[in-house]
Amino acid sequence: MIWSSPWLIGGFLFVLLPLLATIGLSFCQFNGTRAPVFCGLENWAALFDDSVLGLTLVNTSTFALLSLGLGTIVSLATAVIIHQAKFGATWWRICMLAPTMTPLVAVGIIWRWALNGEYGLVNHFLAWFGIDGPSWLLDANWTLPSMVLISIWGIGQSSLVLLIGLSDVPQTIQEAAQIDGAGAVSQFRLITLPLVTPLILFNLLVEMMYVWQTFAVPYIMLPGGGPGRRCYFFTMYIYDIAFRYQRFGYACALCCVELIVVLIPLFIARMLIRRLPIVPHAL
């Protein structure tokens, strides 16, 4: 008890207390400088009359679906390639993880240049194939795909988890399948993929929490959400409501919504994972 007390106290002061305060303040009108005034369900009712909230939910959900889907495919492909690499596996792993160690502000600035419609690296690369790239960050139709593309930058952690999973796939099963005449694709589809599925789901859960909190990169690259507010995400909206518009009570209600939105798929995924034949202990 005595040795765990710092964590218990820390958990109470910095997690539980703020959580309870957030829930409590969501029933108040509060701007930080004036005393909170109880306003009942006003903030919660306002959620249903907020078109910007609807927009941010749609934007964030679309972004989450696309970036999680694409991120999973790319991270799995990366892990498989590195797993099968005959030489320099350590260097490949470093290369894979290096982008995740870059500060997000720097990532935003680098990508703003890379996605420049006229001088950017991405369009320069596309021009090699005769493709006239779009104005990624100025054209409302291309801002969200740009953000999805950038999200791939941070797949290193997911790939690492999958790489560990791939290393744990028993060699004997694969050898047995080979003897039975299974090709590489069949082995991957019927043996490797089912065995790493729990880790894929684990990645999806963790990444989903990150994706729902996406803030720094779009905030730097596309202030206000960019053209048509297509990249105005939920956390950006909470920040604006709290710190730019000084409506802390409503911001607290939005935080509660975010908590609920993240928890629902978490419970669904947890149920799904429990039905799987192999369940990682962490889950």
Partner: peptide, 19 residues
Amino acid sequence: PNWSELLSEYRATYGQVWI
């Protein structure tokens, strides 16, 4: 007093109309 909030709405509209 709520100029910045209103300006955000106006900005979104401007972003839509100028192009």
